[in-house]
Design a protein around this nucleic acid. Structure first.
Length: 500
RNA sequence: GGCGAUAUCGUCUAACGGUUAGGACGGAGCCCUCUCAAGGCUCAAAUCCGGGUUCGAUUCCCGGUAUCGCUACCA
């Protein structure tokens, strides 16, 4: 290996090192909600676009709220979403020594101090609002006096073995700056920043410490996260400096709100990713919708498959305003994907749905694969969610279906119908060839002979053979169902038509 | 209360000093038609308010207002 080769290798290594490293860091205090899902998606899109690395880290330091059993649900949600992580999942609960060591280092260097105050319970957001004029400032947390404690007193507290938290010694003056790819360069007065806790008296790190120590350790280059963290970022910028590490680029993503403009929560209906999976949304449609919530390409195109999202994703396209979760638009995206996806990509989803409904037949994957594909293709313009295939379109996959009440009321009114449908069954039964035009001709000939409009027969027949008023065009439906089924279903329907 | 961010049709958004302020969802209507969708066409619908700067502000600055966030030994 000559010098050139060595230099080239070094250059390549540097190039590899300069690739972005990003992370998604959920805490297992709840399911994966749409806000978190979008944050994960943005991180993933950014990593894929840049050829970087996407890391998954579980921030499970809050022993009180943490529910380990929720981790699997979050991972499942991410898998369904299709955002594969390249490293991890790492668990903060398994890295405690790292945070404690960092806290001790900060105390040793004078950037942090031990605090012996009693922990103040969070009073809730309403606590401040409640105060009448005059008393309104009472709820502010007082500054911790331990920072300026005399050495003798401190020794005494230590000797007594009092529980101690570690707080950051925020500079009293000056400003702290950081760079945000979405909100631009930011600066805050240090005087506005309290001496925040780094290590709880239990020895467990807070979010601020854990996140920064891990982001340094994991060599994170871009922190893409919810804008609810924007106000706290100066604290972390301070921590980076105190820990002697360069700060990463931040990119704060605006929040997703409910229809009432408040933070998305349970009372807004489905907010967990899992519920959208269960409802029968296609992951790619969900990704497309989510990606466009708070990010745009700058163009008018909206139907963007994942490869296109990756190709176009940039941090500069991220919006600065909160977005409201718009369910109708999500459904529109889903119906678009149901219609536009290459058929071969759609079939496995329909298969899974039919299996779930107990309607699946293995032949549809083998000898009758052609039939299955054609039927799905016929059905899909009228579907909005995956379960539509098993519910609304049930009669296409099973002989066990019933007649929709509204459809009967609307299309089985005419008293001539029992007679007409009986004759139609006979006419169809006599057909030598079974195809669209043959069915068409047979039905229209009968209509003409009987002096009724073809529509009367068509609509009544549709209800008889698929049980619903809403279905694909009749003759295509007949072809798909086949002669035997159509004729027998017509005859089976006769008594129901006679007695509506 | 303090600090901060944000502000374009109902919703998601485009515009990066000059446009009849564009697109999409949703809504209304028409076409197509055997139902319902899909598709095509059309319509209604927005620059929070007030001051500046400028020949010219959706766009830049200031103030107000509203909303959201942070202000926890939650993340």
């Amino acid at each position: 290996m000559d010098l050139f080769q060595i230099a080239k290798g070094a250059a390549l290594r540097m190039a590899a090192d300069s690739k972005p490293r990003v992370r998604f860091a959920p805490s297992p205090t709840g399911y994966l909600h749409v806000g978190g899902a979008r944050t994960a998606l943005f991180n993933w899109l950014f990593a894929r676009h840049e050829g970087g690395t996407f890391i998954l880290r579980v921030e499970d330091t809050d022993v009180e709220r943490n529910k380990p059993e929720l981790v699997d649900g979050i991972l499942d949600g991410l898998r369904w979403l299709g955002v594969q992580w390249d490293e991890g999942p790492y668990f903060q609960s398994q890295r405690m020594d790292l945070y404690r060591a960092a806290a001790e280092r900060l105390v040793a260097s004078g950037s942090a101090f031990a605090c012996y105050c009693k922990a103040i319970q969070y009073a809730g957001a309403d606590a401040v609002v409640e105060g009448e004029e005059g008393a309104e400032k009472a709820a502010r947390t007082p500054p911790c006096p331990c920072r300026d404690m005399a050495p003798a007193e401190r020794q005494e507290k230590e000797r007594q073995g009092l529980p101690r938290a570690i707080r950051f010694a925020t500079p009293r003056t000056g400003v702290t700056r950081f760079e945000d790819a979405v909100f631009g360069p930011r600066e805050v007065q240090n005087a506005e920043i309290e001496d925040f806790v780094l290590l709880r008296s239990s020895g467990v790190p807070t979010y601020q410490l854990g996140a920064v120590v891990d982001d340094i350790d994991m060599r994170i280059t871009h922190i893409i996260r919810g804008a609810d963290h924007l106000s706290n970022t100066p604290k972390q910028a301070l921590l980076y400096a105190a820990l002697g590490a360069p700060a990463p680029i931040f990119a704060h993503v605006p929040l997703i709100l409910g229809a009432d403009r408040t933070r998305l929560s349970k009372r807004h209906g489905a907010t967990s990713v899992g519920s959208y999976s269960e409802e029968g949304f296609l992951p790619e449609a969900f990704r497309n919708f989510l990606a466009l919530l708070g990010w745009s390409t700058g163009s008018d195109e909206e139907f963007l498959r994942t490869s296109e999202l990756i190709a176009r994703f940039t941090l500069s396209g991220i919006s600065r305003t909160n977005a409201i979760f718009d369910r109708p638009k999500l459904e529109w995206f889903n119906s678009q994907y149901l219609q536009k996806l290459p058929l071969e990509e759609l079939l496995p989803y329909v298969k899974a749905e039919l299996q779930r409904a107990g309607l699946w037949r293995d032949a549809w994957d083998a000898a009758e694969r052609e039939w299955f594909a054609h039927t799905v293709d016929l059905l899909r313009p009228r579907t909005r969610l995956l379960p539509d295939f098993a519910t609304w379109a049930r009669a296409f996959f099973s002989d066990d279906f019933d007649y929709d009440a509204e459809a009967r009321a609307k299309f089985w009114k005419d008293h001539k119908l029992p007679d007409l449908l009986g004759k139609l069954a006979a006419a169809l039964d006599a057909l030598a060839d079974w195809n669209h035009d043959a069915c068409d001709h047979a039905l229209r000939a009968l209509a003409e002979a009987e002096g009724v409009k073809a529509g009367l027969l068509i609509n009544a027949t549709r209800v008889a053979i698929v049980g619903r008023a809403v279905a694909p065009p009749l003759f295509e439906t007949m072809v798909v169902l086949g002669k035997d089924r159509v004729v027998s279903r017509l005859r089976r329907a006769l008594p129901h038509v006679a007695a509506p």
